[in-house]
Write a protein that binds this DNA or RNA. Structure first.
Length: 936
RNA sequence: GGGCGCGUAGCUCAGUUGGUUAGAGCAUCUGGUUUACACCCAGGAGGUCAGAGGUUCGAAUCCUCUCGCGCCCACCA
């Protein structure tokens, strides 16, 4: 074995061997464990976030070793908008519709994605994912397309998919509709205007939309005043209707009506409620000509303390106004003022044909000239919706799109019950069918579902699943030769002539939502579907809980009658070492492949797991990764040492555990016992998805117990049985570690196999393929040997104490000295004399009370230790040490005595705890007594 | 505006149902070629667990409030 572990030299080879052996293919075991990979973007490259896939791999490898049929299904996502924009950019195309034909574009995109696909798959392999590559899927291949079309038809047939005019987010740049969660928000400073509207005043940042007939909305119960305004010098008068609030609040009024004469006076004419104003009709000059207005009272939409307490509406260009118009059936407000290119329509008069931005400026200018502006706030800051892809402003628009009705009742074919998609999604978590880890995300989930609106699934892009709907114009004679549209929805195109397919494609999340069952070729009947669906765990980042997880739950339950997974494990985001988001612009990103090149895959994997908890963000820096690399090397060297101690199996006695135990040394007992505790702890942690805690325990044991104590003590013991036990324990450790750091452990396993000729390495249960490799070996369980670790623990304490005393008293580190120990458990120490001498670098060790001479004294765990001076010990250093130790011990003693004199504690605390405290007090009292003597 | 999370050693973070002297890695200090490992070994220093109150025999942990930070959702004239 090399002196240091060289990951780069063996990782690819090991991965290849696993694949060759068929180790990633699930066994025939009855119990299954399935994870569907969150498919990465086929055109993407692996980033730090993807590296979190190792959590999935840990679970998969653990369950595989537990003897389950463990299946990890890999695949990629066609990532509709992202891919389309990358491909267009590569082709240098700015206006898709004019510069390329749809078929040609599709061919180009296919060519491109084929290339990038191989890259991302290679990268997934580099991080060691044990996916069954024979089952790889793609969200945009034939079987997945069939699944998409099938569920579309199922939903349509149930009346849960409809086409209709709805308020949607329209990206002018991308020329496509966007889902609510594809919209980002940016801050913008724009002028805010207060405009006359007859005697009313309305506020707006969008003066260009104030060009059509509209109701003037007032609050039903709100109080309004009619006032006479008189300019100071000229004596000009005019009338306004304002909220009473604004009239009485002079400061606010001056802000709002800041274009009016500041020295002018307001005179109250009349007071009324909004209800009383209702029904008034008037004509009024807008920037685009005369328009009609009607006053309409509504209780919900008006905030009396904003502006003048009145507003007009643009039903086609504001989500709120749209809702209002729907609710109040304001049919004559459906006036389109902006078209889908982002240009003003003819209703905008002088601004028709202008872009929104230009029209906004121009409309304000005209109004200013006409004297329509009564107030202006030039520093108004508000948030504007922006397309997450094209980064252009998103316009709320009314458009004909396809939707999924989430609140519509239907009969579930599987249960026969009446339900809605929304309530099925709620029931998933509420009914504990799907467990979210950590469960604090339950609330977030419910909040989102509760507020969920119909999901707009059509997109005006090309790269995606074409909506499986065809139209045909037919003339209906009965209806007086009127043209009627005939609609066909189906998995396959319709027969007959004259059909044209819907031009739109489906939201990329539509196909992603079928992933957990479409990977098994649903709706085809398949053995895989029967065996592996529903999947076991869905592991992903909490940022796509809504985009993806919730929608998989929706589709899974609807299409298959079963929720698609039992557990959702959400990891945090991978951030840089300072806890900042990794981003290209900041340059603080970490490229997993570079890391692998420098430190090895195992170091990367371990660094993502150590010190992390479910749902919390993981900070990743090179220092941490280097530390993990060091650990892998430590494990390597531990193995090197253990293997150098020769091989051989441990004697287990003649069947009676007690007999075997009699022969065991304290070190052996300790090691067996500690290993058992470790196995139990690690299994328990893994069961609860506490990967960070499991890795930490393994790390601590491997380094601070096994390497630092067991190996060192074994050197002194020089016992073949101990050496055999070391090797046995090493094997156990390799197995426990394997899911986390598969490469180095497998490599060491290979080395062991070479030395042992391999007969004893057991195959995994359940007919798992993989030969004698670690990946398919059996995961450790707690052994039946019940031994105690106490004696050797005492040895450790004594050795540590002597080392510490030597150091503090200034003893030459290389010098072998003499020590006296005495106490109740002398026997245990005497048995381990050689070990203590070796570990503490002693020439002689005498089991007796301290002789009457100068030296250094201390106690630990009831054992008194004495190191005679004889020229070895620096008296001054020793005195300082005793003083310090005494102060510390006295302080602790006071605390403990206080505790025991507290009646409540003695009576109510668990008796074992009280007993322990008493024992502790006794030891401390002795210690303090001795130290006091020494100090004088 | 609504919700969630965080604040623990110089830094990055663990701390599961309240229970010995609150832990780890990195950094730091003092030493060190000892049957594997300097990507190492031994020993040490470093914390009023953000602050205030409460419940309890006992609180980093449970409750209330305050301060600071991060994220998500809603995003109105």
């Amino acid at each position: 074995m090399d002196k240091a572990y060289q990951p780069q030299q063996s990782e690819d080879d090991i991965y290849h061997k696993w694949e060759q052996a068929g180790a990633f293919v699930p066994s025939d075991a009855k119990k299954t464990f399935t994870i569907a990979i969150p498919p990465p973007n086929v055109t993407g490259t692996l980033h730090a976030g993807h590296a979190m896939y190792v959590v999935q791999d840990i679970m998969i490898r653990w369950h595989r070793m537990m003897g389950e049929a463990s299946l990890y299904v890999p695949g990629t996502d066609h990532a509709a908008i992202a891919t389309e924009s990358v491909v267009l950019k590569n082709l240098g195309i700015k206006d898709r519709n004019k510069e390329i034909r749809r078929e040609d574009f599709m061919k180009e995109a296919e060519k491109w994605t084929k290339k990038t696909h191989d890259r991302i798959i290679h990268q997934l392999k580099k991080i060691g994912l044990s996916c069954d590559w024979s089952r790889e899927a793609y969200t945009f291949d034939e079987p997945r397309n069939k699944a998409v079309n099938t569920i579309f038809k199922m939903l349509y047939d149930k009346g849960l998919i409809y086409r209709g005019n709805r308020m949607i987010n329209w990206s002018i740049g991308a020329q496509s509709v966007l889902a609510d969660d594809e919209v980002e928000w940016g801050e913008k400073t724009e002028p805010f205007y207060y405009i006359r509207c007859g005697e009313f005043i309305i506020g707006t940042v969008r003066p260009e939309t104030k060009c059509a007939n509209s109701p003037v909305m007032v609050s039903e119960t709100g109080e309004y005043v009619r006032v006479k305004f008189m300019e100071h010098g000229t004596g000009n008068t005019e009338y306004f209707i304002l909220s009473k609030f604004l009239f009485e609040n002079e400061e606010q009024r001056k802000k709002v009506l800041n274009l009016l004469d500041p020295n002018g006076t307001f005179e109250l004419i009349d007071t009324f409620t909004g209800k009383e104003l209702e029904g008034q009709e008037f004509e009024y000059e807008t920037y685009a000509g005369k328009r009609k207005f009607t006053v309409l009272a509504d209780e919900k939409v008006i905030d009396m303390e904003k502006g003048a307490g009145t507003m007009t509406i643009s039903s086609c260009h504001s989500a709120d106004d749209y809702d209002l118009a729907q609710r109040r059936k304001l049919d004559d407000t459906w006036i389109q003022k902006i078209d889908f290119e982002g240009k003003m329509t003819s209703i905008a008069g002088p601004c028709a044909g202008m872009s929104i931005i230009n029209a906004r400026k121009r409309a304000a200018e005209i109004m200013r000239e006409q004297g329509l502006l009564v107030g202006e706030d030039t520093s108004y800051v508000h948030r504007v919706p922006v397309c997450y892809r094209s980064h252009t402003v998103v316009e709320p628009m009314v458009s004909k799109q396809w939707f999924i009705a989430v609140e519509k009742e239907f009969t579930d074919d599987f249960s026969g019950e009446k339900t809605t998609l929304k309530s099925q999604m709620q029931e998933a978590v509420r009914g504990n069918h799907v467990e979210i880890v950590p469960n604090r995300f339950d609330k977030t989930y419910f909040h989102w579902i509760d507020n969920l609106r119909d999901w707009c699934i059509s997109r005006q892009i090309w790269w995606g699943h074409r909506i499986p709907v065809w139209y045909r114009q037919v003339k209906e004679q009965a209806a007086g030769n009127k043209e009627q549209e005939e609609i066909y929805v189906g998995v396959k195109p319709p027969e007959g002539k004259g059909w044209t397919q819907d031009e739109d494609t489906l939201d990329t999340w539509f196909s992603s939502a079928t992933w957990p069952f479409s990977i098994f070729n649903w709706p085809e009947k398949s053995a895989d579907f029967d065996r592996f669906y529903p999947t076991s765990v869905l592991e992903t980042g909490h940022d796509i809980l809504f985009f993806w997880v919730a929608r998989m739950i929706m589709f899974g339950k609807f299409a298959t009658g079963e929720y698609p997974f039992k557990t959702v494990y959400l990891h945090g985001l991978v951030q840089d070492e300072k806890g900042k988001k990794m981003s290209k612009s900041k340059g603080n990103g970490i490229d997993p492949l570079e890391i692998i090149e420098e430190f090895g895959t195992d170091a990367l994997r371990l660094s993502l797991i150590m010190g992390t908890t479910p749902g919390n963000n993981a900070n990743l820096g090179k220092e941490k990764i280097a530390g993990c690399r060091n650990f892998c090397n430590k494990l390597w060297n531990v193995s090197r040492f253990v293997l150098s101690q020769g091989t051989g199996n441990r004697e287990r006695g003649t069947g009676k555990p007690e007999e075997a135990e009699k022969k065991q040394t304290d070190l052996q007992k300790w090691l067996i016992s500690k290993t058992n505790i470790l196995i139990a702890d690690v299994n328990e942690d893994l069961k609860h998805y506490l990967f960070g805690a499991a890795a930490e325990k393994l790390w601590d044991f491997t380094w601070n117990e096994f390497a630092d104590w067991a190996l060192e003590a074994a050197k002194a013991e020089n016992n073949p049985q101990t050496n055999a036990l070391l090797q046995e324990t090493l094997k156990t450790l390799l197995k426990l570690w394997h899911p986390f750091i598969p490469f180095v452990t497998e490599k060491i396993w290979e080395e062991i196999s070479n030395t042992e000729n391999c007969p004893a390495l057991p195959l995994c249960k359940g007919g798992q393929k993989g030969g004698f490799m670690l990946i398919t070996s059996e995961y450790p369980t707690v052994s039946k040997e019940h031994t105690s670790c106490e004696s050797f623990e005492l040895v450790k304490h004594v050795a540590s104490k002597i080392r510490s005393m030597r150091k503090n008293a200034g003893v030459d580190p290389g010098k072998k000295i003499t020590a006296f120990v005495s106490g109740e458990n002398n026997d245990a120490l005497q048995k381990n004399e050689e070990i203590i001498k070796f570990l503490a670098r002693l020439e002689t060790l005498t089991f007796d009370t301290a002789p009457e001479e100068k030296g250094s004294t201390d106690t630990v765990s009831g054992i008194h230790i004495f190191l005679p001076s004889k020229g070895m010990i620096d008296p001054a250093a020793e005195k300082a040490r005793i003083k310090k130790e005494l102060e510390k011990s006295e302080k602790m003693l006071i605390g403990i005595k206080g505790k025991l004199s507290n009646e409540g504690y003695v009576q109510k605390a668990p008796p074992e705890l009280v007993e322990k405290t008493k024992q502790q007090m006794k030891e401390l009292e002795e210690k303090v007594e001795i130290l006091r003597k020494e100090a004088t």
